[in-house]
Amino acid sequence: MVETILNLIVQGVLIGGLYALFALGLSLSLGVMRFVNIAHGDMIVLFSFVLLSLTGVLGWSPFLVALILLPVAFGLGWLLQRFLLQRTVGKGILPILLVTFGLSIIIQNGLLEAYGPNTRKLSGGAIELAALRLGPIDVGVYPLLVFLLAVALIAGLDAFLYRTAIGARIRAVADDPAAADLIGLTSARIYPVAMGVVGITMLVAASCMSVWTNFDPSIGPSRLLAAFEAVVLGGLGSLWGTLIGGVIIGVAQNFGSQIDASWQILAQHLVFLVALVFRPQGLFARS
């Protein structure tokens, strides 16, 4: 009994690393650009399908392909912000939500046309099957590596935002874009950079997800909801909070899944809603 519960918690924590990866980009776009990208989950799924196609053609490991694609992911995020989303800045929340909503529908249905509705998965090689025996429980090496990758990525982003000059500029624009514009720190040039970084986190999340779980063109929204809940649970502006939020979501899902598949999602949502009632500002909000 204790072993089962311990196992559920450990596996839940590890999958929480994957959810944190989903959520990092969302956390950034919320914190810096102050918008919810409704297409966030769909863009991750889009990257997964791109990896599917490229690994199919090249025959390389999806991780290697993802590594090579990192600049492309940055570029896509940059272009998206610069040429589409930037047009909605300063016009309130409605246009940006609706534009990303339209984008979400376009990506979902575009993928459906291109790849069909079947579920897919990428092979990560032998590492997928490797396991470590830690006391009474087995821990998959791959989930553990994904979790560590999430930790490393957060540490990296934290250092980027808080230790570099460009990071300070991004935070300055996040604080007050109008003030930034007044002193010549053009927010319209900073936002695309931030969205490029979001693109990188999306690609990393996509590569980890596509090896770990099945995916199909329709799963973007459920990834968005999990990411969103992780961000709100953790508290806006706190990347480490987002990791904790992801872990809570993962553990809740794991306990729910002991009953059935719909309880898996229901448990996730209920934990989120309860937390919202008692701590709407999130667990680790930077005030």
Binding site: A168, D176, A179, I183
Partner: peptide, 15 residues
């Protein structure tokens, strides 16, 4: 019109 969450040093450095 300072950047409230940035440090004094960071505010100055941006200038």
């Amino acid at each position: 019109k300072l950047f409230p969450t940035l440090t004094i040093f960071e505010n100055l450095r941006i200038g």
